[in-house]
């Protein structure tokens, strides 16, 4: 059965027309299902957990923001076996994930959902909690450690741990690579460090790719003992040391034909 999770911001009246259009298109395609409206008190994670308790093979479609889609997928951590398929209809906000997975904005995504082109993707795990796309570290005063090597960021503006949702394009000669997409099917996670640069003296600051590492298991901790590192993952706050690894669980997601990953 199909379950449609409507993001909490869609409750506003101005989105009613769009919701109606989506519901009409979904009915035309014969993929109607049960609608669940998310609120501050009912998160995507809780909604998916209650669906999975009832049904073994549901299809959960998140309508709204990318963050909500990530939260919905992370709910499978408590279920040993599941055949849940996740879909995403991006609304209002630009979504890097949607671009990579070839999911068009709004109503047009319904057609992609109905085609049910399903791929299995890796998931990341931080202190036992799953993540599908990425998380940014709140500070650059950290060090990253694997069994064999350590990385100390010296001049970084941002550090990102990513499974998907990382795309880089060449903007200057210093950016060695033309275009890269992190794959959620390579059984590896990535660490990306970014540096701030100005194009010219009065130019805008922009983030440039500095480093890129691949790993399966890593520990992240604060450089200073008196500074505690806390990470906000969805609605959870995780404290350092952060143990990040590739999760044994995989997620099934619906993608478009022209996606940027295999």
């Amino acid at each position: 059965m199909y379950y449609y999770l409507y993001d909490s911001f869609l409750i506003e009246k101005k989105y009613q027309k769009l919701i109606n259009e989506i519901e009409t298109r979904v009915a035309e395609l014969g993929i109607s299902g049960r609608v669940i409206r998310l609120t501050l008190l009912k998160t995507a994670e809780e909604a998916v957990e209650s669906i999975l308790k009832r049904e073994a093979n549901p299809t959960v479609i998140v309508v709204g923001k990318e963050e909500t889609f990530n939260q919905a997928i992370s709910a499978i951590r408590n279920f040993k076996e599941n055949n849940c398929v996740f879909g995403f209809i991006p609304v209002k906000f630009f979504s890097e994930i949607a671009t990579i997975l070839d999911l068009p904005m709004g109503v047009e995504s319904c057609d992609v959902i109905s085609q049910r082109r399903i791929i299995e993707v890796d998931l990341g795990q931080v202190n036992g909690f799953l993540f599908f796309s990425y998380f940014d570290l709140p500070t650059n005063k950290v060090f990253l450690k694997t069994e064999n090597w350590k990385v100390f960021p010296v001049k970084c503006s941002k550090i990102r741990v990513s499974n998907l949702a990382f795309r880089w394009q060449k903007k200057s000669e210093e950016d060695y690579q033309k275009e890269m997409v992190s794959s959620p099917q390579d059984s590896l996670l990535e660490i990306i460090t970014l540096k701030e640069k100005r194009d010219s003296f009065f130019g805008k600051k922009r983030h440039c790719l500095d480093s890129l590492f691949f790993f399966k298991h890593i520990w992240i901790n604060s450089l200073k003992k008196d500074q505690e590192l806390c990470l906000q993952l969805g609605k959870k706050t995780l404290k350092a040391p952060l143990e990040v690894s590739l999760a044994s669980k995989k997620a099934k997601i619906i993608v478009g034909r022209d996606r940027l990953i295999e």
């Binding site: 694997t146 990385v151 060695y176 275009e179 540096k195 480093s211 890129l212 590492f213 691949f214």
Partner: peptide
């Protein structure tokens, strides 16, 4: 067109090990 992703040890980091 996408290129194969490579490991980059950038100028903003120090790697030990």
């Amino acid at each position: 067109e996408t290129e194969k992703v490579e490991t980059i040890i950038g100028s903003g980091v120090k790697l030990e090990g």
